[in-house]
Design a protein around this nucleic acid. Structure first.
Lengths: 313, 313
DNA sequence: GAAAAGTTATAACACTATGTTATGGCAATT
DNA sequence: AATTGCCATAACATAGTGTTATAACTTTTC
């Protein structure tokens, strides 16, 4: 016989092994006794050897069956497991998300959001890979990651982005004379050396423009890519910086003062993902959760002076 | 949907993953395209999420499917494996045999037979457990082993036995005066101290009777359970022994002489197995092979003087 | 040892799974 | 706009899986 092995036959076999009689096995499976009976005769036919020996009223599996029993059990268990996992997936409780993000997010805010997200989703796992924006963009284009957190994003046909405009603030060491003001303006900073982002960044240009608009100019103390680094420097008494409020508040009790900066110059974050790679439902759910986590630091989209946006969805 | 996951659906899924189109997947499976098409829609229905995204002309699996892919592949592989193993079983090339034997067999003759037997049967594995006859009998009754090699067996209702009467010979160190004779009789041994089996053994009793029949008597030098031990002692120049020819020939070139002993006193081996436990085909095959391996040392069943047998099948 | 009780195998039939062919719609390409 | 190829659906055939009814066989009971 060149018949195919069927799962149902294995289920019947295991039920009979556990119950020692066909009748009670049928009861366990919730079907009639003749159904089990035939599943067994079919299986015996296919396998080519006897499955059971009669021993008084009982059926005991043959040596041959015992030899296969472990593997058969494994198949049935695996099928169950697949069923359970797929159930979890539809309930958004299983899956994997690969996230690429700016270094600043990898250590502070993102892990917090991830932890919260995983709390209710025991089957979900997440990869976090921090790198420069250029690399994150590449990864999106190559579809190597499901979700990216970047800035300075100028749009790309292979990437969908959702922009978030983060409020920024001015920070300086405690006891600094600027502490007498409720708001900080470029004019107030005319004699201060500033810690800021790279000169080629969009954020720096808008900052510089704000200074120029008040007929003053911006003096550089340190140029850094990360707001966190700027915060660190300031908390060590080093100078003045304009940073994302989100980063600033983490240093609130570490020897710095925080003041609104006027005019408001929001820092534009982009939540990106590959446009062609269909996202899993759990990925979309995470992106929403992440965006929500940023909400309390969100500001108005456009800086008041009306700089144009470069977003292309 | 509270549908059941079916193997065929998984086969279709994997085929489409490998082929990127339903049509070629159908070709791989050797069925029509609509058949695959429906298997997939059914599976999607059951799982509760999409299986593929269209990407130009190609179908690429969703994140969710990728998450399950490894497990699904494992199930299919396991099923294949079970099919192959069962095939091997019907061809008598797979299985397991548990053998209990006398210590003398565990080290010399049995491993040789086992090695030969396994040569053509790569899937077969064998357990060898040496112990005293009493323990071997227990193991048979408890059905803990498939096959036992013992002696002095007096029959038991839970055990089937097949008796083999092994020729015995007289051995003595090279250069011993007995070497002048072609056959050794009790009379010739009247002044010799003998190495023999335990006094309560059936074999010893028959040996002693042979001496009494010639109006002489047997003097003990050493009493041992194993013929191999007797051979070892003799080869070290220690005395005279009556042992199984099978054991004797292994010492043929180790400083001993071998002569027939008259009257012939065969040593009765019993090949036993549990009567209720249905033996696997491979077990029966092995027992036959083992019996055949003893054939060239087999002698007549009954000692000429007509001692009665105690066998009960 | 005959009767009773329980278990299993077979037959006849119903429904579901899985295959077929025919066909129409949709997308990519010409 | 026409062509080509791929996929989904419909209609139907066959095999797998369930049902009930019933006969045959075992074990237990008297």
């Amino acid at each position: 016989m060149k018949q195919k092995l069927r799962l149902r036959q294995f289920e019947a076999l295991m039920a009979v092994i556990h119950n020692s009689t066909v009748t009670s096995a049928a009861k366990e499976l919730g079907i009639s006794q003749p159904a089990v009976s035939r599943l067994l005769t079919d299986l015996k036919q296919t396998l080519g050897f006897s499955l059971f020996d009669r021993r008084g009223g009982q059926l005991v599996p043959t040596q041959e069956v015992r030899f296969l029993q472990a593997d058969i059990q494994r198949v049935l268990d695996l099928m169950d497991q697949i069923g359970e996992v797929s159930q979890s997936i539809t309930e958004r409780k299983a899956g994997h998300i690969k996230i690429a993000c700016l270094p600043g997010f990898a250590t502070s805010h993102l892990p917090m959001v991830v932890a919260q997200f995983l709390k209710d989703r025991p089957g979900v796992s997440i990869t976090i890979e921090p790198d420069r924006p250029e690399r994150i963009l590449e990864w999106m284009i190559d579809e190597q990651f499901d979700f990216g957190i970047t800035d300075g994003f100028r749009g790309h046909s292979a990437v969908v982005s959702r922009d978030i405009h983060m409020r920024t603030v001015c920070i300086f060491p405690k006891g600094h004379i600027l502490g007498h003001h409720d708001e900080i303006t470029p004019t107030l900073l005319c004699d201060e050396k500033i810690i800021h982002t790279r000169r080629d960044s969009n954020f720096f240009q808008r900052l510089e423009n704000a200074f120029l608009a008040e007929n003053t100019h911006l003096m550089t103390l340190v140029e850094t890519r990360q707001f966190t680094a700027a915060c660190e420097l300031v908390s060590n008494g080093l100078g003045v910086a304009i940073v994302s409020e989100m980063d600033a508040v983490k240093f609130a009790n570490r020897n710095i003062e925080i003041r609104p900066f006027v005019p408001s110059i929001p820092h534009r974050l982009s939540l990106v993902r590959p446009i062609l790679k269909q996202p899993s439902a759990i990925t979309l759910e995470f992106i929403d959760a992440f965006a929500a986590s940023l909400a309390r630091f969100e500001g108005p989209a456009h800086p008041p002076q009306g700089a144009q946006q470069a977003d292309r969805p």
